[in-house]
Write a protein that binds this DNA or RNA. Structure first.
Lengths: 221, 221
DNA sequence: TATCAAAATACGGTTTCCCGTAAAAACACA
DNA sequence: TGTGTTTTTACGGGAAACCGTATTTTGATA
């Protein structure tokens, strides 16, 4: 059962509704943080006082507004929070709807649930909190369906490096030099060309511009 | 004074808060639409009954969910709504924060206000409704400041066409043929090359990949 | 260490792109 | 209609990208 919840969310409008939703679920102890740093502070304080949170509901993206923050967003927040309190359950409430990104959250950050800000998000939020309250993971509907479908080409960090350089205007022939300076290992021109070919092949593309567009669209870059 | 409002917004969570915000402003007559088509229907009905809305608050982007819609989003909705009721005041409430896009809304669609879903959006919403209630336009803070700063290169429809073709993998040398078939006017290869050069020149780029990345980032494409 | 397989690199020919100049067409205006 | 200007197009040389093949390097294994 979820009794004590911290909501980290910078949008006032969203906070108002999350509060109402939590009240509907009879959650008694609700705290709010409009900044990641503040959220981490509250988690730490509560934990040290022996009165830790059951659940953290957080957005992924927080707008910068002049207040200097050490934590840049939801991902850093949950990483830091888990260091303080490893058993803290985490529910992401975000606009993100790209499977690759959500996948990453479950696999590498072990979140307990993800709810997309979308049409029936208030209802989904309630379902998620109920599931998590019983120590079960909650997966969004569209994710459950799409996860075993065609899983798009998964770019390596190396791949993204190359495409990013292209998107920044570097000539392909100049990339080997750059990679060598950075100490990135396969730096031969042929290897780079081959990698680009593999990616294009895998995605049915013919031009590097398509790779750039695709990475921008899927959030890989 | 705003008395009768229609809220078109597909996110349940947002709707809950907008309702609360409007109640705070003592707006008496509030209607909701989760779909654009439904919103237009309500506007038409109210107008024909001689009991038209004072204000439409709408999102820009609506999620598709199986229900077939003739209106694809906020922009189509406001265009259609103005045909029914030209004096309808319109407030956009959206996550959009790209100056070019917001600019377009004021200049070409003559919206009365824009509030970004952001940190203090509930407060901004109240300010906007008060301003619009007095028949004044409301401009978001960050927009007021950035509007006279460096206004990025503004792409023509023709420009976007070319960049889109590149992003789809078409070879530059094949573009003339394509444009001719489509009846798009300057179709010479040299002209296309020159246009690309102008765009890159204006933005300080050297490669077409940068143009693709830029358009994706700014939402021009 | 010797051997084999896989990965990385070197190289060369072809295609596409880039970019400048010049000719042609479209347009504005008297 | 004639003139001047701008836009569009044609053309060509050089640079970069593309792509296949051959060679070298790396890494694992016996």
């Amino acid at each position: 059962m979820i009794k004590k919840v911290l909501v980290a969310e910078d949008h006032e409008i969203v906070n108002i509704s999350v509060q109402k939703t939590l009240e509907d679920l009879a959650v008694q102890d609700i705290s709010y943080a409009y900044y990641c740093d503040d959220a981490l502070y509250k988690i730490t304080q509560a934990f040290n006082a022996g009165n830790s949170y059951d659940l953290l509901i957080t957005d992924l993206h927080f707008e910068a507004d002049g207040h200097k923050q050490t934590l840049s967003g939801g991902i850093e927040l949950i990483t830091a929070a888990r260091k303080v309190q490893p058993d803290l359950r985490i529910l992401i409430f975000s606009l993100e709807n790209r499977t690759a990104v959500i996948d990453n959250l479950y696999k590498n950050y072990h979140i307990d649930g993800f709810v997309a800000k979308a049409r029936n998000d208030a209802r989904a939020l309630k379902e998620a909190i109920n599931e998590i309250g019983q120590y079960r993971n909650y997966y969004p509907h569209h994710y459950r369906q799409s996860t075993n479908k065609k899983n798009a080409y998964s770019f390596s960090e190396y791949d993204i490096n190359i495409i990013t350089l292209l998107a920044q205007g570097m000539l392909i022939k100049d990339i080997p030099k750059y990679l060598q300076q950075k100490g990135i290992k396969p730096s031969g021109l042929s290897t780079i060309e081959k990698r680009l070919n593999q990616m294009k092949e895998a995605l049915g593309f013919t031009k590097n511009e398509q790779l750039v567009a695709y990475c921008k669209d899927t959030g890989a870059m």
